[in-house]
């Protein structure tokens, strides 16, 4: 029997043109530049790779970037969920206004966020002053980084959970209630589990975004190597020193580490979803 074409001839015109444009544009702007980066990193040689991998400054930067990003995403998961819940389920004055404001961290330029947060949390700032009074310094410390990353990741959890919550079938709650479950029981056994995959997706997105964040962080971070220096900043510093090899190596490490983490979270998500049947 004839081998069937993988590609079905289509009556709609423009395939060649649009695919050609898409591939060339994508190739020129994204693929080729990224490939060049990987080649440069490979070019650096194993010695350089290992040197960077084990350099204390690099390791510290990774600890800072990934660790704080994880914590920030976690905080966003909790509070973002509460925000989504409150917006979808309750009614209060200003609800719509608040809902449209959620995307602010996404629309606001990162540099603006950076200086605003720094101003807010510096020792004389509106929030920094009361914190200093109880002995907590936020600006120019890892805590500042955490605050900036929470800001940046805020919309992700909210916007991922909201639609699922909106579509949630109230009849599930009603049937549980009629079977005699208490409100807490209903919340934890009936409502929350189906929302878990969406929550995890939001967490993942916030996490991924926080790992690579630059502009919002560098103003408030302090940028002390080994203490409050993030990986993107390290890359920039290497570039300024013309240590292209080092920069590409660290960038590659960052991409690989992100990829592995995201893959792990996606698998966890798929497993959760399978257990719940969707």
């Amino acid at each position: 029997m004839a081998v069937h074409a993988l590609w079905q001839r289509s009556v709609i015109p423009g395939f060649g043109l649009t695919l050609g444009i898409t591939l060339s544009y994508l190739g020129l702007i994204v693929i080729i530049p990224l490939c060049v980066m990987f080649f440069k990193a490979a070019d650096a040689g194993w010695a350089k790779f290992l040197a960077e991998l084990t350099s204390p400054r690099t390791l510290a930067a990774f600890r800072v970037s990934f660790g704080i990003a994880f914590l920030a995403a976690f905080i966003n998961a909790i509070f973002g969920f509460i925000v989504a819940w409150v917006i979808v389920r309750y009614d209060f004055p200003g609800r719509r206004f608040v809902d449209s404001l959620i995307d602010l961290p996404f629309a606001l330029p990162t540099a603006v966020a950076g200086i605003a947060l720094t101003s807010l949390y510096s020792v004389h700032g509106w929030l920094g002053a009361p914190l200093a009074a109880i002995g907590i310094t936020a600006a120019f410390t890892p805590l500042g980084i955490l605050i900036a990353l929470v800001f940046v990741g805020l919309p992700f959890v909210v916007r991922t959970v909201e639609p699922v919550l909106l579509d949630f079938d109230r009849e599930l709650e009603e049937s549980a209630a009629m079977l005699g479950a208490s409100r807490t029981s209903i919340l934890f056994r009936v409502v929350f589990p189906p929302l878990l995959p969406a929550l995890m997706t939001g967490f993942t997105l916030a996490f991924a975004r926080a790992i690579g964040e630059y502009g919002s962080v560098i103003f408030i971070a302090g940028n002390i190597p080994g203490y409050s220096e993030i990986v993107p900043l390290l890359i920039v510093i290497k570039l300024e020193q013309f240590d292209y090899a080092g920069a590409t190596v660290i960038a590659t490490m960052m991409l690989v580490a992100s990829f592995i983490l995201l893959l792990a979270i996606n698998l966890l998500q798929a497993w959760t979803r399978r257990r719940q049947g969707g």
Partner: peptide, 20 residues
């Protein structure tokens, strides 16, 4: 692949062109 620039740190987005 189209989503790639989204998942990559903006710093890398600038770096690749410096490399080129």
């Amino acid at each position: 692949l189209i989503d790639l620039p989204f998942s990559v740190s903006p710093v890398i987005g600038g770096m690749v062109f410096v490399l080129l």
